[in-house]
Design a protein around this nucleic acid. Structure first.
Length: 408
DNA sequence: GTCGAACCTTTCGA
DNA sequence: ATCGAAAGGTTCG
């Protein structure tokens, strides 16, 4: 493995908070280790992240002996073992984390346009829409139907372990890149996924993989917002704005609907998080609750979440928040997640106690000391994420414990 | 266009 | 602890 030193770039927690962004239901593959470092296999390397109030730190770990070329004369292929020849990790980080937009400015705009956003957003700053791989987003959100984030994460992990190429190990854990469509379009995949606990989504994944494989090359990325091209491509104009969404967005949404297991909500998730269409507003159970509670839906004409109501909710948010409505929506969605619910309660003296109780419950005692350190770090950077660790560790815990001594 | 039921399994919360 | 409900929905009739 060719590990590279940590790099750092200036970044405030208002511009990006990875502890929120990486576990708010956008990507389901990030794992946090005991030292508080987030890692994920991405584009043929293991990308690791952590941050303090002033900086974002990143590091890539490349697989050993991964010759870009069929290993010509090994004569002077020196320590360049991997990736060192033009390390594109800085560009990848910039691209994946979507660091270009000024998030503070966007929050200001959304707050000015919407009192409810202004009220909710201050406790959920730094939520950034990631630019994920479109295929991964498609698979992840097909799995998300009628499901919970912990299980979706577990399923994505299994998918990588069983069908993705192994890149290497970190903290003793294997990291696999995300499988290509062809890997999931093979005979027997459906049955195997079912046995792995995917339930009825096994068939959706297999059939969608087959359909994608049959499409012309580059079909999925062809549905991208030209303003948000894949890494290395030049940005172009995204088309004319309208409250129902730009033409390219509508086209992408419509095409995605033809895939198995893809309805309006999943299609919007892929549009927003995989294809760069900022106006895509996925309306799920959370957003529907929000729309009823805070935006006067749920009565009369729009009393139930029909297709027409679905579109109306999206239009409402698009006309309210504009071109990046899906982004604003994600902030409110995050605020609605149980995993973050503690931020909504007022800071009272009882809180410390509650946290302690939660921590002891269901966690390995061995981790106690480490976790207290972690807590200190979290406090130092002035975030309130003690609550979050519990959830994240729970996800990893099930994976790990299933292989080791679970009974204690 | 709308409605209801069925769908797999895990996690959550009372 | 245990058990029903809910979980970032979609499909089918």
């Amino acid at each position: 493995m060719g590990a590279v030193e940590w790099q750092k770039i200036p970044s405030s927690l208002s511009e990006l908070c990875i502890n929120t962004t990486l576990r708010c239901g956008q990507s389901f593959r990030w794992r946090k280790n005991d030292a508080g470092v987030w890692s994920m296999a991405l584009h043929n390397r293991i990308l690791s992240l952590h941050q303090d109030p002033e900086h974002l730190y990143y590091r890539a770990t490349f697989p050993a002996a991964q010759p870009a070329l069929p290993t010509p004369p090994a004569s002077h292929a020196p320590s360049v073992a991997a990736g060192a020849e033009e390390d594109d990790t800085p560009a990848l980080v910039q691209h994946y984390l979507n660091l270009a937009p000024n998030l503070t400015e966007l929050y200001k705009q959304w707050s000015a346009a919407d009192a409810n956003f202004a009220k909710k957003a201050p406790k959920f700053t730094g939520v950034r829409i990631l630019r994920q791989d479109a295929w991964e987003a498609l698979v992840g959100f097909i799995c998300s139907s009628n499901n919970n984030i912990a299980r979706i994460s577990q399923m994505m992990h299994k998918l990588c372990v069983h069908y993705g190429p192994l890149l290497g190990h970190l903290d003793g854990e294997p990291y696999h890149d995300f499988p290509e469509p062809a890997a999931l379009a093979q005979e027997g995949v459906e049955a195997n996924l079912r046995s792995l606990g995917f339930g009825y989504r096994a068939r959706y994944l297999y059939e969608t993989a087959c359909m994608v494989v049959e499409k012309p090359d580059g079909w999925l990325d062809g549905l991208r917002n030209p303003e948000a091209p894949v890494l290395g491509q030049k940005a172009e104009d995204g088309g004319e704005w309208q409250a129902s969404g730009r033409e390219g967005y509508r086209k992408a949404h419509e095409e995605l609907l033809a895939l198995q297991g893809v309805g309006p909500k999943v299609a919007d998730c892929v549009c927003l998080m995989g294809l760069g269409w900022g106006e895509a507003v996925p309306v799920d159970t959370h957003v529907w609750q929000i729309a009823q509670r805070d935006y006067k839906f749920g009565k009369g004409k729009h009393s139930s979440l029909t297709k027409a109501t679905y579109d109306a909710v999206g239009d409402k948010f698009r006309s309210l928040w504009g071109k990046e409505a899906g982004w604003a929506h994600s902030v409110l969605f995050t605020a609605d997640l149980r995993a973050f619910s503690e931020r909504l309660v007022a800071k009272v003296e009882k809180k410390e106690e509650d946290v302690e109780v939660k921590k002891e419950d269901g966690e390995e005692p061995v981790l106690e000391d480490i976790k207290k350190e972690e807590k200190v770090v979290e406090k130092r950077i002035k975030r309130e994420d003690e609550d979050g660790e519990k959830d994240v560790l729970a996800v990893e815990g099930t994976v790990r414990r299933s292989k080791r001594a679970r009974k204690g």
